[in-house]
């Protein structure tokens, strides 16, 4: 084995190294998952209670108080839960990965490995929470005696989309967090902001297709779809709820496009900053 270290050299072997360090990646992800459910006895319970409570509250607020109705014959609680599923994952993954580099500062300053392992690992950890919540969704469907159809088999595709968007934003946030140490105060705000910009408690059909403003025709729905979570949430609803929720290919493609841009730019920015992580962390 012959290794050459030169300025700028690490760039060239990056992807090969990523593969070479797969065992470390697996063991770090395993560590995070073990610790997550070991540290708090209610670790698993917590992963269930949070989405359950928000689903109940949202169903009451939007359905009973705001008198919104779900499209078709879907119970409103299922409409909310189907959106909560990817949203909770997205929110957790975003805040976990934004802190992941700082949390592993001792490793980063003491050993070499492709730093990309760390934020990916934290998104995966959040994915375990997601799987638990998925069980909750199944329980709710049984409760409402709601049987999904063939569209369910397309769910993994939307999971990948959710994963990719969380990963893209997470990369940006964690790199910015190392660079600007007060950035972490902004992250909860971004999460909250994103929550109100995402159709968790209501159906996207509530957002008008067109919006007339001083004589201008604004394609409001398409602009709304710039939020990658719009495509993800509507995709989840479509595949889980027998396609009774609206589903626009144009909106989905915008979300997919935004996600791809986020991931690509996230990787670019992360790798640009990565070289100095050990020096500034």
């Amino acid at each position: 084995m012959h290794l050459i270290l030169e300025p700028g050299r690490a760039e060239k072997n990056y992807w090969r190294d990523l593969w070479r360090y797969r065992e470390l990646f697996i063991i770090l992800a395993w560590r995070d998952i073990t610790v997550r459910y070991k540290q708090t006895v209610i670790g698993v319970v917590w992963a269930v209670i949070r989405p359950l409570l928000t689903t109940i509250v949202f169903t009451v607020v939007f359905s009973k108080i705001a008198k919104l109705s779900a499209p078709g014959a879907i119970p409103y609680a299922l409409l909310v839960m189907a959106a909560n599923l990817p949203w909770q994952f997205f929110a957790t993954a975003m805040s976990e990965s934004s802190n992941s580099l700082i949390g592993n500062a001792n490793l980063i300053s003491k050993i070499y490995f492709p730093r990309l392992i760390i934020p990916v690992g934290s998104v995966i950890t959040s994915f375990v929470d997601f799987l638990i919540t998925l069980g909750l969704m199944a329980a709710l469907m049984i409760w409402f005696q709601f049987v999904p159809d063939w569209r369910l088999f397309l769910l993994p595709a939307f999971m990948i989309l959710a994963f990719a968007s969380a990963f893209g934003i997470g990369l940006w946030l964690c790199a910015l967090n190392v660079e600007y140490r007060d950035f972490r105060y902004i992250v909860p705000f971004i999460v909250q902001f994103g929550f109100f910009l995402s159709p968790v408690g209501f159906s996207t059909t509530r957002v008008p297709e067109h919006w007339l403003w001083h004589g201008f025709d604004i394609p409001a729905r398409l602009i709304y779809s710039l939020n990658p979570m719009v495509g993800v949430i509507e995709g989840f609803r479509w595949s889980l709820l027998r396609g009774e929720s609206s589903f626009q290919v144009s909106a989905l493609s915008i979300s997919v496009f935004v996600t791809v841009v986020l991931c690509a730019s996230g990787i670019w920015y992360f790798r640009k900053m990565e070289r100095t992580f050990a020096d500034v962390i």
Binding site: H2, L5, P7, I111, Y112
Partner: peptide, 21 residues
């Protein structure tokens, strides 16, 4: 630098073996 935690600014290092630090 030898354990690859940080990159050199100038110069070159050749390591002909597995390194553990």
């Amino acid at each position: 630098i030898l354990s690859r935690i940080t990159e050199p600014s100038t110069g070159r290092v050749d390591l002909r073996g597995r390194v553990a630090s």
